[in-house]
Design a protein around this nucleic acid. Structure first.
Length: 134
DNA sequence: GCCAACGTTGGC
DNA sequence: GCCAACGTTGGC
């Protein structure tokens, strides 16, 4: 089992919409590093859902329900999408400020590589954030 | 709205 | 293959 974090601008696609839809095709990734991360995702892996820009907080936990397949928004074979489904909303969103303040999270991809929209998480990091959100 | 970080593009 | 210019992301 692996752990990941994805970013979404809530103006574009919020956790609320995600819950209403029940499932999302995570497409449109056009960055090779992010693409490789998508390819490494496996069914039932858990994915933290982060609101960037507005909110700036981890708001929920999603689950991989379909592993990487060709991105339907492009003909290019290079790009892939995965499907995610909401698993659990966090009782309290975990803000970027909280994450920055926590020593245990100082090496998290979210802080080290701000521009990546999909990133791997260590189990410890996942656990700390879920703990803060409980 | 500004700007830093950083990936991508294209000229050489 | 180098590197400057450019575009995008996202925090502030």
């Amino acid at each position: 089992m692996n752990y990941w974090l994805v970013k979404s601008e809530p103006q574009k696609y919020s956790w609320d919409t995600f819950e209403q839809d029940g499932r999302i095709c995570w497409d449109g990734v056009r960055n090779y590093q992010a693409r490789n991360i998508l390819r490494a995702m496996q069914n039932n892996d858990l994915v933290l859902y982060y609101h960037s820009n507005e909110g700036k907080a981890v708001v929920g936990i999603a689950k991989v329900v379909k592993e990487a397949y060709q991105d339907p928004t492009t003909d290019h074979k290079d790009w892939v999408a995965v499907d995610l489904a909401p698993a659990q909303r966090l009782a309290k969103p975990v803000t970027l400020q909280q994450i920055k303040k926590d020593k245990r999270l100082e090496n998290i991809g979210l802080l080290r590589q701000m521009r990546l929209s999909v990133m791997p998480l260590k189990w410890e990091e996942f656990d700390v954030i879920v703990g803060l959100g409980g």
